[in-house]
Design a protein around this nucleic acid. Structure first.
Lengths: 323, 323
DNA sequence: GTTTTGCCATAGGTAGGAAGTATTGGACAG
DNA sequence: CTGTCCAATACTTCCTACCTATGGCAAAAC
């Protein structure tokens, strides 16, 4: 009877009651709304107790539900305490999570990974290490870091990679550039003006792939300026050295704008890469949680054409975090 | 992190610790031993804490596990209390469970069903109704009982039937009968002496089927005496009126013995049958729990030949409780 | 009045996990 | 050396929690 109520159910119940709205609660729990709906219905059925008054703009807990909610909060707290105590007793000391990240990975992603990690493992420190792809891959191979956030493709043999986020590449230019008036830029307009690139040595495969992609639309990759960080890229654009390709949605210096390129959908893919045989025990939990959360913020996939990716899809090598 | 620990896990942990032996705990929990083993291993992994010292004759909880166990007991108790309170608040009054049973269903089965039901729903009364198959089916059809324990086959259209237990039929005779010296009785020995049967009107289909089965081994069904209960059957055997077929393992009057019949494996199948459209809310829970428990005590399936069953297997109609 | 928006519910499919069976391996006892 | 008793492993099966897609309904917006 009571075996039908698990901590999970209480957690969901509480979230729904607190939000007064299943849809919002689902978001908070990183679930789809119908899942939560059916869960709540199942709970009502299992207990044979109506838990919510449904009404046009949300739900409202019944008195019986209120009991469960207050009690449930208590229980959840007790559980956390209990587990913490048990673990403390065994002096579970985590070795710090050694996490590398390339500066060409969206900083927000990096922060989200960190915050997920610390919320799962508060006692476990994170030792960050930034660097370019080549460096980080080497460190992964050597086991000097446990995982890294990189942009694809990666060539390292036997490294587990979890593709993570796809973002579209757009042209970055000065706001007062004549082309900035257009909603979209035709590829041929870029010829000779697209000159600012990430230092190729930092990620040879990605650079090569990018050149190929440019070539396909008839642009000769004209690497006049090389930079090591996205910020530098923007400064170069500001100083009028040409255009650059940046991730759509990335934070822009004032005075700069981005424009999509007509007829193509280039994307950069970020991924979490695991080291060869790391002893970091937090990794399975981290992956699990990230998988759950990232499902939701998966790209809107508005692209009509199949997107051209900087990552040539090699299936089997990649363990997708989302479909 | 702590989301990896559910009430279920605590319950398992406690059972294992209390029994000091995974195999025994599994039995208590109506689980298979490997399932429980992997659960415990998973828990240790999730928490990153060793929970048991494995040793030659069992397992022994570590101090960390002890913490979880005492805390877990508390939590489980709190959960039960919480749910009880919530349900009380909504005055969940169950209508009594109206359960019919035929006297030809093993009484132990009936009792087990009742005990499962009351352990799941302590507040729900059980109103029992005994009778023969025909009567009970009629009551089910009319919705005057919620469920019934019957022997198969049942002809009622549209009734959900959950096959439940299979037991072998053996010949019942006096201990001083000359044939009682034999381990097994050859079918032809029964000719003319197998004369005591359940009143055919109580279950026409089963009777018919039984006659067919006898016919197949060359015995003419010679219904000299008809009885309405297994006890009457035994009295008739005692008074020397002939042999009867009874369920193997059923309780015997003193002075009577049972012997298997060579070369055949006749069985009676019992089943839980649900009424047409009962409003009894406890039924889903009951079914669920029975399914779990009965898996374990499924027949040892020692029969070399496929057993000849009083239930002609009509698939699709029957929802099996076990495979 | 029609459309849009913001809810929740239902339907149907998928995949991961918890269950099962069968088997192995280790440590004793006879 | 064999039989017994445990737990662990390997593999399979099945359930259910979750997904996406869609529908219905009421209030708000046009």
């Amino acid at each position: 009877m009571s075996d039908l109520v698990e901590f999970r159910n209480l957690k969901y119940l509480i979230a729904v009651a607190e939000e007064g709205n299943i849809t919002r609660a689902a978001k908070r729990l990183y679930l789809a709304q119908p899942s939560l709906s059916t869960q709540m219905k199942g709970l009502e059925e299992a207990l044979q107790v109506p838990l919510f008054i449904r009404d046009r703009n949300g739900v409202h807990a019944t008195p019986a539900a209120e009991i469960l909610i207050t009690g449930g909060r208590e229980l959840l707290k007790l559980r956390d305490g209990l587990i913490a105590t048990a673990r403390a007793l065994h002096r579970v000391t985590f070795t710090p999570m050694r996490l590398g990240f390339s500066s060409f990975v969206d900083h927000a992603l990096y922060e989200m990974v960190c915050s997920v990690h610390t919320s799962l493992f508060p006692e476990c420190e994170i030792a960050s290490k930034s660097g370019d792809n080549v460096e980080l891959l080497l460190l992964l191979q050597r086991g000097e870091i446990d995982a890294a956030l990189l942009t694809l493709p990666v060539s390292g043999a036997g490294l587990k990679t979890y593709p993570f986020a796809k973002s579209r590449l757009v042209v970055c230019m000065k706001a007062d550039d004549p082309l900035a008036r257009l909603k979209e830029i035709a590829p041929q307009e870029l010829q000779a003006k697209l000159t600012i690139f990430q230092e190729p040595k930092q990620h040879p495969e990605a650079h090569l792939r990018l050149m190929e992609m440019l070539d396909e639309v008839g642009i000769r990759g004209d690497v006049a300026s090389k930079t090591t960080t996205p910020h530098n890229m923007q400064w170069m654009v500001e100083s009028g050295q040409g255009y650059a390709l940046v991730r759509e949605g990335s934070e822009m210096h004032i005075g700069l704008v981005t424009r999509p390129v007509t007829g193509v959908t280039w994307t950069v893919d970020s991924a979490l890469i695991l080291g060869k045989s790391t002893s970091q025990k937090t990794i399975p939990g981290l992956i699990r949680e990230l998988r759950k959360r990232l499902r939701l913020q998966a790209s809107p996939s508005s692209a009509s054409k199949p997107p051209r990716s900087v990552r040539p899809d090699i299936e089997g090598e990649n363990l997708r975090l989302f479909a």
